[in-house]
């Protein structure tokens, strides 16, 4: 006998599982960007804690903003939408794609502004908030001449960049995107969430791998270079956390598979042919905007 004929609202549980999946990355980002710098004397103790405190502040601020939006703007007294909001998770992801020394007075308002933009236009388009945030932040910081992917520790020492350090994440990069290992731990947690669109990372990685094999045979790139390009580009983080963001991906199976195939194939080309790693986020942004189109593909019924 199946128990529980009426199902409960599971969105809160789903969102908590999403947040749980990025906790290993947040903890590692504190170790990499804060603890190492503090331990080696490049940063004092309290500033080093910012990499633990800021994500908490961002998640808390997201709830405050959601409360304001639903209570004051939408005049909805029911707090259900606030509690079940996916925004704290996406905002925490936005934090992870920031540079380690990015200024808070730019990043936090940008996150809030994006929330507002998404709230008003996302009914027609499915915009991937994290990809949009990453692109805007990159452009903004470049314009201000403040773009830097190194943290305080990496600015002062020479960082070893062999395959193992790429895998662990001990390389220059955004706050939480460098570690392949911790991204994979996050993926393992996400796989417990049956609402996570696992076909996106699976199809993406397979199609990416196929294109990489073609690149290997038809170009001068060797296996190690391809592997380093892949690990250094943030492709794994984007594939696991950004591309499958359910609110900005197709709901139709065929559409989801086409979305993933395009993402895998094009990102393999971007990563290995251009070295323009921001291209991955631009690609996700474009693909998410095309989501209504992908939703028109009907699945051949089994």
């Amino acid at each position: 006998m199946k128990k529980g004929l009426l199902k409960e609202n599971k969105v809160l549980k789903i969102n908590l599982l999403y947040i749980l999946s990025i906790l290993p990355l947040i903890i590692y980002s504190y170790y990499k960007n804060g603890f190492l710098a503090f331990h080696n004397g490049f940063m004092s103790f309290f500033p080093s804690l910012q990499y633990l405190i800021i994500p908490i502040i961002i998640i808390a601020l997201s709830y405050v903003f959601e409360t304001y939006y639903y209570l004051v703007i939408k005049k909805d007294e029911d707090m259900h939408n606030v509690i079940n909001s996916v925004v704290p998770y996406t905002n925490a992801l936005c934090y992870l794609v920031c540079g380690p020394l990015d200024r808070l007075y730019i990043t936090i308002p940008l996150i809030i502004i994006l929330d507002i933009i998404i709230k008003f236009i996302d009914t027609k388009f499915s915009i991937n908030q994290i990809a949009l945030f990453k692109c805007l932040l990159f452009v903004l910081l470049n314009l201000l001449g403040m773009y830097n992917n190194s943290n305080m520790y990496e600015l002062n020492v020479t960082v070893n960049s062999n395959l193992t350090s790429y895998f662990i994440g001990n390389v220059v990069g955004e706050i939480g995107t460098t570690s392949i290992l911790f991204s994979l731990i996050g993926l393992a947690i996400l796989l417990f969430n049956k609402y996570y669109k696992k076909e996106i990372p699976i199809v993406t990685i397979l199609s990416y791998a196929i294109v990489c094999v073609i690149i290997y045979f038809f170009t001068d790139l060797n296996f190690k270079q391809i592997l380093i390009n892949t690990m250094a580009s943030g492709f794994v983080f984007a594939t696991i956390f950004v591309a499958p963001l359910s609110v900005a991906t197709p709901v139709v199976k065929t559409g989801t598979i086409i979305y993933s195939l395009l993402f895998g194939i094009l990102s393999a080309i971007i990563v290995n042919a251009t070295n323009f790693y921001l291209g991955i986020y631009i690609l996700i942004l474009i693909l998410s905007l095309l989501t209504p189109l992908f939703n028109k593909f009907k699945l051949a019924i089994a």
Binding site: L5, L6, E8, N9, V11, I14, D78, H80, N81, N84, S85, V86, S126, Y195, K197, S246, V247, A248, T249, P250, V251, V252, K253, T256, N295, K298, L299, I301
Partner: peptide, 29 residues
């Protein structure tokens, strides 16, 4: 007639997980 214990059946915003499309026996959205 289903007589169920009273429970607040609150709905929240769609997370576009696609489960409804996946389960649909006549394959509509």
């Amino acid at each position: 007639i289903f007589i169920m214990n009273h429970e607040e059946q609150k709905s929240s915003k769609c997370i576009k997980c696609g489960k409804c499309v996946e389960i649909c026996p006549v394959k509509i959205n």
